[in-house]
């Protein structure tokens, strides 16, 4: 879902950067408040893993592929969607500047879609589902919905940019990302969370003791 430079006119791309900037700053503030020396290796491992898994496109049929985004996974492990925004910002910076995966002018939009929208929607959906469901099912549901909503937001941005027609764009983006979200985001996030729950249950408990219930806070963006 990495938007290239040519998909959004420069003036609109700058607006998305302006909207993204406070979220990026907040994610840095989160680091100053929550990231201690012990957690840095976890953050770095997740960022590296997410960069690599984003190169692994999974075929979903219809001549289309997709990959995991990862913001929800990071948010669940750290117990905060700001951690997801931070990791996706770092990953998108390297992808944009070194690999032309996602534009530089459109990086603000990409950070908003993949870091902010998918991370916040996914994390708060997870928190809500977690009350009555097991961790792995809640992680699946959150990750799936997070990716799907971010694709819908992306389709609307493409319409505002004059690049996609509204209805056809929504249908195409929605259909593909419903499937990508199921396999690429939902299943993989759930598998990763299950593996971490087995090997490092303390990482997940931690996120609940430090952030008991923030799901009442509305999902913005």
């Amino acid at each position: 879902m990495h938007i290239p430079d040519s998909f959004i006119p420069l003036d609109q791309a700058i607006i998305y950067w302006v909207i993204a900037l406070p979220f990026i700053i907040m994610s840095m503030k989160w680091a100053k408040k929550e990231l201690d020396e012990m957690k840095i290796p976890i953050l770095a491992a997740l960022a590296a893993g997410i960069f690599a898994i984003q190169a692994m496109n999974i075929p979903i049929g219809m001549g289309t592929s997709g990959h995991m985004v990862g913001a929800v996974l990071v948010a669940i492990i750290f117990g905060s969607p700001w951690a997801g925004v931070l990791v996706l910002t770092l990953v998108l910076l390297v992808q944009g500047f070194a690999f032309a995966d996602g534009g530089i002018t459109t990086m603000g939009a990409n950070i908003l879609n993949m870091g902010v929208v998918s991370g916040f929607v996914g994390y708060y959906t997870y928190s809500f589902l977690r009350r009555n469901l097991s961790t792995n099912i809640a992680a699946f549901g959150g990750a799936w919905l997070g990716l799907f909503i971010s694709a819908i937001v992306c389709a609307i941005e493409m319409w505002l940019a004059g690049t996609f027609p509204l209805r056809a764009g929504l249908i195409a983006m929605g259909t593909y990302h419903l499937i990508i979200g199921f396999i690429g985001e939902g299943l993989l996030t759930s598998i990763a969370i299950t593996a971490i729950a087995k090997s490092r249950p303390d990482l997940l408990e931690d996120s609940f003791t430090t952030r008991p219930d923030k799901s009442k806070k509305e999902v913005h963006a």
């Binding site: 998909f7 692994m56 496109n57 999974i58 997709g66 493409m158 056809a168």
Partner: peptide, 21 residues
């Protein structure tokens, strides 16, 4: 593994673009 296993098909956004643009 990715260079050998990853799908060469366009991603969701590119694929949508090729159909609706």
């Amino acid at each position: 593994l990715a260079p050998f296993l990853a799908s060469p098909d366009p991603d969701g956004l590119e694929s949508a673009a090729s159909h609706v643009v």
